[in-house]
Design a protein around this nucleic acid. Structure first.
Length: 544
RNA sequence: GGGCUCGUGGCCUAGUAUGGAUAAGGCACCGUCCUUCUAAGUCGGUGAUCGUGGGUCCAAAUCCCACCGAGCCCGCCA
């Protein structure tokens, strides 16, 4: 929970003393008209009288003035009051807003990609959204943790193993030959049906607990998984815990789960299913092997043992699966945790869908390398004085931040078409724009000898705008949590950076009478930038 | 065919949950500003019947209905 002096709440309370019907939504954060705005359409009273009554009842010090404009009443807050709240919070607690530690434990499951190939730009949307949600919930005061559910027991990963046995048996398995074997076996399958039988035979042995086979499959899967981990690490994503699907089979949890709901299971041949309306959800195959749905039930029951709130980040292709899963968990099992699903639209290439099997992908590593290259080129052009070490630091920060920002800033339910020209654009609404604005602030602070200890009392338009955007940070944070939408933080950062850039261009600091006051403003800005950037994985540097 | 999601200037994105002030940014294009703290920046200009058609309402990008277009799902795959 966020803790700060919320002027909106105070204003709302006073307004309701006069007009009890005023709702939360009738008062909103103002844009250019005022700091807070009340819509008075509903009040059915002469606006001038409303204004008069409100002015009489709202005599708080922090109110600078109250204006009537058409059907809106605008409230202007003294900038020094807003800034004072932010500044005091940072001074006392290290950040603004302060938080109250929530007792709820939340687990964010993200990525969980089948370990059958390198992670590509289609899949990183999952990781980027998931990691950002994790950091946002953590900041808000939840005790948070991330988890990757590793599929090492489905047909895909069995194919990965079989591909290696068939085509690269004498080579030590590595990412390259595993991927080749995987793609080759799917090509082969198109003409040779017997391969499917081989896979099924392996699945059956697997399910019966063939230890050697399970170990071998886990071995190849872990090689691929390690590559996924190291790719994600480059963009600042480290997942707290990994849970392997095979464990639930090995230790009999899947079977126990099936027994516990045996009354509700129906049979078609030897295959078992649950009926939801006229839909059949199969839990086991005719040969007795388990299906993803069963393993996912067991996995969610396992998760709820330790967490009060589960958040699953899933591709939009999982919408039906998730709906059915939630229904089954709540109907047939003792499932108490709160559960939320965050879906995201696919990232496609300009020439169509990505496919690991068909080799039509842009991997995260490719994208990272190209972004570094482009960034180095630009740094050498713009900052000829930077040494190799600095170039390396800056280009790596820009690459990680740009990749994350370009993906996280768009609303998850919109599809994205990946374009190199956009991925490598470092101007306008981009991560470097935010990083640049921050570096400018750092530069001023470096060059000033003032410590910024005093709050001023007259702030010009640019200073006031900056203060207002900074004050609105908790509102964005709150929305991001409420709707599990990290894009809200990304857009907030753009607005904040823009407000600073305008201030910077119009308000000289060093060697002016306003230096102390403005240094304080910049210090506060720096703190909020660091706070918000961290949430979506933008790496800020003192100089870029 | 059924279900879910999306459609906002030439291109990309915000605004839609909670209807309300001239639809806000960016890219591209034209022009402005470095004798002052990083020009990856700033300011100005060109450019939008908010997919189409109805409806509700004092008021619709936002709500409702229909249609069109795109994506995803409709497996004893995951």
């Amino acid at each position: 929970m966020l803790i700060f002096d919320d002027y909106k709440e105070i204003i709302l309370k006073r307004l309701r003393e006069l007009y009890p019907d005023i709702s939360q939504n009738d008062v909103e954060l103002g844009r250019d008209y005022g700091d807070f705005t009340l819509k008075i359409f509903k009040l059915k009273e002469d606006p001038k009288i409303i204004l008069k009554k409100i002015k009489e009842n709202l005599s708080e010090d922090f109110i600078e003035r109250i204006d009537l404009q058409g059907n809106y009443i605008n409230f202007f807050i003294r900038p020094e009051n807003m800034l004072g709240i932010i500044y005091n919070s940072i001074k006392d607690f290290g950040y603004f807003p302060n938080t109250f530690q929530d007792t709820s434990k939340v687990l964010i499951e993200h990525t969980s990609a089948n370990p059958t190939g390198p992670i590509h730009v289609g899949r990183i949307r999952n990781s980027i959204i998931g990691d950002s949600i994790y950091k946002i919930l953590e900041r808000y005061g939840y005790r948070s943790c991330t988890q990757y559910f590793v599929n090492d027991s489905g047909k895909q990963v069995i194919s990965l193993y079989l591909g290696h046995v068939k085509y690269h048996k004498n080579e030590k398995p590595d990412l390259q030959n595993l991927l080749d074997g995987y793609q080759r076996i799917y090509r082969e399958m198109e003409t040779n049906k017997s391969i499917e039988n081989e896979i099924e035979a392996l699945a059956e042995r697997y399910e019966k607990g063939d230890k050697e086979l399970i170990d071998n499959i886990q071995h190849v899967a872990s090689i691929v998984l390690d590559s996924v981990k190291s790719s994600l690490k480059k963009i600042g994503i480290e997942i707290s815990t990994y849970v392997w699907e095979s464990n639930f089979i090995l230790y009999g949890d899947v079977n126990k789960m099936l027994e516990s709901i045996s009354e509700n299971l129906k049979s078609e041949g030897s295959a078992k299913y649950i009926e939801i309306g006229d839909k059949k959800i199969f839990l086991t195959r005719a040969d007795g092997t388990s299906l993803y749905f069963s393993r996912d039930i067991v996995y969610h029951l396992f998760k709820q043992e330790n967490f009060d709130w589960l958040v699953d980040v899933l591709g939009e292709d999982h919408k039906d699966h998730a709906k059915n899963l939630e229904y089954v968990l709540k109907t047939f099992f003792d499932f108490q945790s709160k559960i939320d699903f965050v879906f995201y639209g696919f990232v496609s290439l300009e020439n169509g869908k990505m496919s690991t099997r068909k080799g039509r992908i842009v991997t995260l590593d490719d994208l990272y390398e190209k972004t570094i290259e482009e960034s180095v080129k630009i740094i050498k052009e713009k900052r000829p004085d930077y040494d190799e070490n600095l170039i390396k630091n800056v280009s790596e920060a820009i690459a990680a931040s740009s990749i994350r920002f370009n993906i996280v800033r768009v609303n998850a339910n919109k599809p994205i078409v990946f374009k190199w020209s956009e991925a490598l654009n470092f101007e306008g609404d981009s991560a470097p724009y935010i990083m640049y604005s921050y570096a400018r602030a750092c530069s001023v602070l470096r060059k000033s000898s003032k410590s910024g200890g005093e709050l001023g009392n007259d702030y010009n338009k640019y200073e006031k705008d900056l203060i207002r955007v900074m004050y609105s940070y908790p509102y964005s944070l709150k929305s991001a949590v409420e709707f599990l939408r990290p894009d809200i933080i990304a857009n907030y950062l753009l607005n904040l950076s823009k407000a600073f850039n305008e201030f910077y261009l119009n308000c000289p600091v060093i060697n002016t009478p306003e230096e102390s006051k403005r240094i304080l403003l910049i210090m506060v800005y720096k703190n909020i930038m660091e706070d918000a950037s961290k949430l979506i994985g933008i790496k800020l540097l003192d100089e870029i």
